[in-house]
Simulated scan of single mutants.
Amino acid sequence: MSTGSVLLDAAALRSLLPPSSLVSHLLSSLPFHSATVHSPTRQSFPINPDSSSSLLLMPSWSTSPTLPYIGVKIVTTFPQNSARGLPGVSASYVLFNSSTGASLASFDGTELTLLRTSAVSALASRFLSRDDSRVLVMVGSGALAPYLIRAHRSVRPGIEKVIIWNRSAAKARDLARRLAEDEGAQKVERSFSSMQKYWTK
């Protein structure tokens, strides 16, 4: 008997998908399932040409009986939202059963994208960076930055210093302050002060 579709918000996804677990899952699943996953070219539909707002659809599905899913990422882009104090991009991810077509779950698409993108980057670092890496340089302090830092530190736990570079020193300081709530934050704050002279206004 179906129990209905599950809704997972950003907080639930962060709790269920810590960086180390997500990286390990991608390491084991990507090589095995990549040949059976089909992802057509992203479709884009203009909503209001005057404001450049648009709707993006990104479907994907698997033909493997061990991965019986259809997923669709739905994204809206509204550049004018910055003037309203609202996010310019919003996203949801909907998961279906590929055998029955039944809706299984709906995820916060923005959070899922941040978690997945940072985990794939960290997975690449696992193969490309030195095992004894001690310093991580983060270029930029946008929404993805803290996720990248956490994910890379999960695969290179020996990192002792995180250097944050950003065009705006104030935004870099804010990121360092927010990271101060996480484990190892003192290392971020020390490196932060040492990089101020390299920031541009």
Rank of each mutant, 00 (worst) to 15 (best):
Pro19Gly: 00
His33Asn: 10
Gly101Ala: 07
Tyr69Met: 02
Ser39Gln: 07
Glu111Val: 00
Thr100Val: 10
Ser29Trp: 07
Val120Ile: 15
Arg130Gln: 14
Leu22Tyr: 02
Pro68Tyr: 09
Ser82Gln: 14
Ser34Asp: 06
Arg173Met: 11
Gly85Ser: 02
Lys73Asp: 08
Ser168Trp: 04
Pro68Leu: 12
Leu16Pro: 00
Phe107Pro: 10
Ile47Glu: 07
Leu55Asp: 01
Leu13His: 00
Arg42Ile: 15
Ser133Leu: 14
Gly109Arg: 10
Ser193Pro: 01
Ser118Pro: 06
Pro31Cys: 02
Val94Tyr: 05
Gln43Asn: 08
Leu179Lys: 10
Arg134Gly: 02
Gln43Ala: 14
Leu128Gly: 04
Ala176Cys: 08
Arg190Gly: 10
Ser20Lys: 15
Ser39Asn: 06
Ala145His: 02
Ala172Ile: 04
Pro49Ser: 02
Glu189Phe: 03
Thr113Phe: 11
Ser21Phe: 08
Val139Lys: 02
Ala172His: 03
Thr77Gly: 09
Lys161Leu: 14
Arg173Gln: 14
Thr41Pro: 05
Val135Phe: 04
Thr110Leu: 05
His38Trp: 09
Met138Gly: 01
Gln80Val: 01
Asp182Lys: 09
Ala145Pro: 03
Trp165Met: 11
Ala169Thr: 12
Arg84Val: 12
Ala91Gly: 03
Ala122Lys: 09
Gln80His: 11
Thr41Cys: 08
Arg156Leu: 15
Leu112Gly: 01
Ser125Pro: 01
Ser154Pro: 10
Gln80Ser: 09
Val162Leu: 00
Asp50Met: 01
Pro18Ser: 05
Asn81Arg: 12
Ala119Cys: 10
Tyr69Trp: 10
Glu160Tyr: 05
Ser191Gln: 13
Arg167Phe: 06
Ser121Ala: 00
Gly71Met: 13
Ala143Met: 10
Leu16Met: 07
Lys161Arg: 15
Pro65Met: 02
Tyr198Ile: 06
Leu179Phe: 11
Arg190Gln: 14
Leu114Ser: 07
Pro40Leu: 11
Tyr198Val: 07
Thr36His: 15
Ser98Gly: 00
Gln186Asn: 08
Pro65Ala: 03
Ser154Arg: 07
Ser106Arg: 03
Val137Ser: 08
Ser52Gly: 11
Arg177Thr: 13
Thr200Met: 10
Ala185Phe: 11
Pro19Leu: 01
Leu17Gln: 00
Ile74Asp: 14
Gly85Thr: 02
Leu17Cys: 01
Gly142Ile: 11
Ala180Phe: 14
Ile164His: 05
Ala35Val: 09
Ser53Arg: 03
Gly109Thr: 09
Ile47Met: 12
Ser53Glu: 13
Pro79Val: 01
Trp61Lys: 10
Leu95Arg: 04
Ser21His: 12
Ala151Phe: 06
Ser64Glu: 09
Ser98Asp: 00
Pro79Leu: 01
Ser44Pro: 03
Leu7His: 13
Ala170Gly: 04
Arg84His: 15
Arg134Met: 07
Leu16Arg: 07
Ala10Val: 00
Arg134His: 06
